[in-house]
Design a protein around this nucleic acid. Structure first.
Length: 463
RNA sequence: UCCUCGCUAGCUCAAUGGUAGAGCAACCGGCUGUUAACCGGUUGGUUCCUGGUUCAAAUCCGGGGCGGGGAGCCA
């Protein structure tokens, strides 16, 4: 009787007979041999059906299999004659078909991304999404492990909220009995209440933003890791971001080698990342940016000369024009600016102490320089840009009240939040890390839409 | 909200305003170890919808729909 098992455990069954349950991934056949690629969720193995090794019925059944047909398959495990892999030699009666799949839409050939996302429920079975979902799972597991081992409490924030965290324009409004509620765009304010109770907490959940963005870096629903810590300053904060990032990088390099290989991720870049990460004051970032701009423009002009594609030319022209003027103090960095800054380093960079005007109302002002706030962005290298945003929170009651007024936010909705400053206020802070952006960077994929099972964007809520 | 590109067979794409095609998939056949297998054949069309220009529209123009890429904003 063959042993029931799964493909990940195959190496321990060499020269033994096993039964696998799975799906046909691909098939190649000749007159006397059929090669069946079997996928069982844990991996893929090639099964061999030889016309002289099986009965007629098994031979016919093997021939009738179509892509994604479900089956049980039994045979002897052996080493691949050419490759460092194992394969399954199908035995007589070794094929038990559960269902023949007809017209599976996703073929092993090329498809456009629109088509693939329309068929996301099936595309998830293909190698690339399979690898990415496993990396995502490990990234989440690594983050939770990091915080757990560091003494943090998991503190879940509500998803229905009565108020805006950072403004109302990009909130999803939903009916709530006789009233309305909003889908949370951040758990941070609730996280702060948890920090006052447990000192170190981490909120993990989905965040919703009705931003009408259509880029590879935006989703309307994304997963958000938001630690919040009492008695915690901006330097503690950067140190925490750094430790977390290193922990996750090392975890993924340790656990996801096959997946990274499948995605053809050049892992040298990740392996070479060392602490300390670069720490750049906003002022210095602005100066550096203005110094580097002329060189970048030269580069782009060269690219423009070489470019033949018209859309690429137009894009390059626009980017050159945008870079043409000096970056003025007080502005926020755009994607091209972040690109210039990160390109010169081999590790993530922190930009800290942004002007108060471009950061959220709750950011603490810098006591040594009132123009700026104690805010931090962490920019990933290789052009991935911002993956963490955070900072120290304003602890002074009167300052916060003034900020809420200045930002035209409804005071009554923030009474509970203001209570934190009335009763035992203290320097505290935290940050928000985008899970999908982190996965995209570590896995080296272009779009964060591939980094979540079902991406939600401005014009896709199906499937 | 703005800019930009696109929509033709199941998929990826061709087609000077003049008979709508290829590759892949599917189906049939061939091939002794293939691995996005290969070779031969067959089937497959409301050219996104709508209105217009024209002797004639996949192609040009207007309106709409859907999708890709980007800006701003952000995780």
């Amino acid at each position: 009787m063959p042993i029931k098992t799964t493909i990940d455990k195959i190496p321990q069954f060499v020269d033994q007979e096993v039964t696998l349950s799975g799906w046909l991934y691909n098939k190649r056949e000749s007159k006397k041999l059929k090669f069946l690629e079997i996928r069982d969720g844990m991996g893929i193995i090639q099964a061999i059906v030889g016309i002289n090794d099986v009965d007629d019925n098994t031979w016919e059944q093997a021939g009738s299999l179509t892509q994604e047909s479900s089956l049980h398959i039994s045979g002897r495990i052996s080493k691949h004659p050419k490759k460092d892999e194992y394969e399954l030699q199908v035995m007589p009666g070794g094929i038990d078909i559960v269902q023949i799949s007809v017209d599976y839409p996703i073929t092993p050939k090329e498809h456009g991304s629109g088509f693939l996302f329309q068929n996301r429920h099936l595309w998830l079975r293909s190698k690339r999404p399979w690898a990415l979902m496993r990396i995502r799972s490990e990234v989440i597991h690594a983050i939770r492990t990091f915080f757990y081992e560091d003494g943090y409490i998991t503190f879940d924030a509500p998803i229905f909220t009565p108020n805006a965290c950072e403004g109302t324009t990009d909130l999803f409004e939903v009916p709530y009995f006789d009233s309305v509620a909003y889908l949370s765009q951040s758990g941070q304010l609730y996280g702060e209440t948890g920090a006052m109770s447990h000192r170190k907490i981490v909120v993990f959940g989905p965040s919703f933003r009705a931003e009408k963005s259509k880029t590879r870096r935006h989703l309307t629903e994304f997963w958000h890791i938001e630690p919040e810590i009492a008695w915690f300053n901006i330097n503690d904060n950067m140190e925490l971001m750094e430790r977390l990032t290193m922990f996750v990088i090392e975890w993924v390099l340790r656990k996801c080698r096959p997946e990274l290989e499948l995605l053809e991720r050049d892992i040298k870049f990740l392996e070479n990342i060392k602490t300390p990460f670069i720490r750049l004051h906003y002022d210095d970032a602005v100066n550096q940016l203005n110094e580097l701009k002329p060189d970048r423009i030269k580069e782009l002009k060269k690219e423009l000369k070489a470019a033949t594609d018209e859309t690429l030319q137009a894009e390059l022209k626009r980017e050159i024009e945008e870079l043409g003027t000096d970056f003025k103090w007080g502005g926020d960095f755009g994607a091209p600016d972040e690109g210039i800054l990160t390109r010169q380093y081999d590790r993530p960079i922190f930009v800290h102490r942004f002007p108060r005007g471009i950061k959220a109302f709750y950011m603490a002002p810098d006591p040594e320089d009132e123009r700026v706030s104690l805010s931090i962005d962490m920019l990933a290298p290789e052009g991935y840009g911002e993956i963490i945003g955070g900072g120290q929170r304003a602890e002074d009651y009167d300052y916060l009240v003034a900020q809420i007024k200045k930002h035209n936010l409804p005071m009554e909705a923030y009474q509970w939040y203001l209570d934190l400053r009335k009763y035992g206020t203290n320097p505290h802070g935290g940050f928000g890390l985008g899970v999908e952006r982190t996965v995209a960077w570590l896995a080296g994929v272009h779009s964060i839409r591939e980094c979540i099972p079902y991406p939600r964007t401005i014009d896709r809520v199906y499937p």
